[in-house]
Design a protein around this nucleic acid. Structure first.
Lengths: 183, 183
DNA sequence: ACCTGAACACCGTTCAAGT
DNA sequence: ACCTGAACACCGTTCAAGT
């Protein structure tokens, strides 16, 4: 990539990160281009779709969720407690930017999506945590990680759209967890 | 209301019903005005916001949910079975038009919304069903109907956005129900 | 009192002209 | 090879002019 192209690419991603934080993942691309001091065509050349841009923005932090999953796998606290903080963590990550829960949860079921592979990282982290408890026999074995991601994603979408606080969200997650536990 | 105004009002609502069915509740208002043979200003005069229009459209069927709730209250099938078909019914109603789950579930937590009172009808129907099982002691008493509407609404939103089939949706509802049951 | 439709604003998307 | 920005399309919203 040419030096000026690389510079524009980096500036656009940095600006998008900022604008997504301020206004959510549905923020006008126009504003991103303007604040990055590039023409709209430049943004489109680098990122043909909004999801391509989202993909570049989340690249810097999406893998961090694996550490949280790792903690959940190793923790010796009660299952319900571990799952509650793990799911809360999951929700917090995909809700980092407004509009995130909707984007991630939809893309997870769509292999064509530019951010599908990033969603797989989320799902696999979840899979690892669920696997631990499946082995221990404390949660149902007939619900796969995709389905769990969808249900938790649904809770996150409602919380995101409605602006619910963490306590209310945790209460909803508690219901889902009780539905997963066999005990 | 003047005769011509009344006629326009009725035509707009009828056309909106059609367009919402075809393209969902986020369909362009423009198309509704054009197909109803009125100017955009006429649509805005009668319905200042999209939600005002939605309110008029759903008026004709929103109360039907009470009959389904009534059936659920009287049914002598096992609780899990009754709740599953009730929640499936609830999801089907709010998913009648694409984009519906998101609209209803958001408005339910916002008393300022023009469709808030319609959402109350949904919530109260749910309340009646939940009350029956609370009295019987088969479901948790610490989760109110608003919270249940939110969780089920979240499932409906995911299903709506992702285009999930009824079986997959029912499976997710099953998890939520198991989380509500005390047995 | 109500309707019309031109006009404006906003935003996504394309592409001819430039470097 | 890449960038610019004018231009177009689309859609929501307003309002002066009409009936």
């Amino acid at each position: 990539m040419r030096a000026d192209a690389q510079k524009n690419y980096d500036t656009i991603v940095a600006t998008a990160t900022l604008v997504f934080t301020e206004k959510g993942m549905d923020a006008p691309l126009d504003e991103i281009a303007t604040r990055a001091d590039v023409g709209p065509g430049t943004l489109y050349r680098h990122f043909p779709t909004r999801e391509d841009l989202i993909d570049a923005v989340i690249k810097s932090w999406i893998a961090q969720i694996e550490a949280a999953a790792h903690d959940a796998v190793l923790s010796d606290s009660p299952a319900r407690e571990v799952l509650l903080s793990w799911f809360a963590e999951y929700v917090a990550r995909i809700s980092r930017n407004k509009g995130g829960p909707s984007k991630f949860t939809s893309a997870m079921s769509n292999p064509q999506s530019p951010i599908f592979s990033k969603c797989e990282v989320l799902r696999e982290a979840n899979e690892r945590v669920l696997d631990r408890f499946r082995v221990e026999g404390v949660i149902r074995a007939d619900i796969d990680s995709l389905e769990v991601c969808r249900i938790i994603g649904g809770v996150a979408m409602v919380a995101d759209q409605t602006g619910l606080d963490e306590l209310t969200t945790a209460s909803m997650l508690g219901v889902v967890i009780d539905g997963l536990l066999t005990t």
